[in-house]
């Protein structure tokens, strides 16, 4: 599993396409069998409590794409704070398990753990 992080709109899915995954192989549903899962932050936002239990399922994917959501002013709203914490902690666990972690900065993939993956095939 390779974890791909970055801001909203930074180019995470474009990076997945550059590795040879087409859009049919990408899903934002946790129960899908697609090799690429994107929008993990929205899955956590919907159910932040116990999101750590998703770890094993997520580790079976080839790519997991998640927005970095922890920067900025701490939100006034408790639900938003809980969500940010849950997403952050899940990403720490995923990063520990990942073969590589790639952070997309303005569309540029930066390997922050392991090596940048090669395109498929």
């Amino acid at each position: 599993m390779i974890l791909v992080l970055g801001a909203s709109g930074a180019g995470k899915r474009a990076f997945a396409r550059s590795l040879g995954y087409n859009d049919d192989e990408m899903s934002c549903r946790i129960d899908s069998a697609a090799p690429v899962l994107y929008g993990l932050e929205e899955i956590v936002r919907a159910r932040p409590e116990g999101s750590e239990a998703l770890l094993e399922t997520l580790c079976k994917r080839e790519l997991v794409l998640c927005c970095e959501v922890g920067s900025g002013v701490i939100p006034d709203n408790l639900a938003d704070r809980v969500f940010r914490e849950a997403a952050g902690r899940l990403c720490v666990l995923l990063a520990q398990r990942a073969e590589a972690v790639v952070r997309i900065v303005a569309g540029i993939p930066v390997a922050i753990k392991g090596e940048l993956p090669c395109a498929r095939c």
Binding site: S71, G72, R84, G88, R89
Partner: peptide, 12 residues
Amino acid sequence: MMILLTGGSACG
């Protein structure tokens, strides 16, 4: 020695 650590919430 002084070390400054930054990062978002719950980033470790």
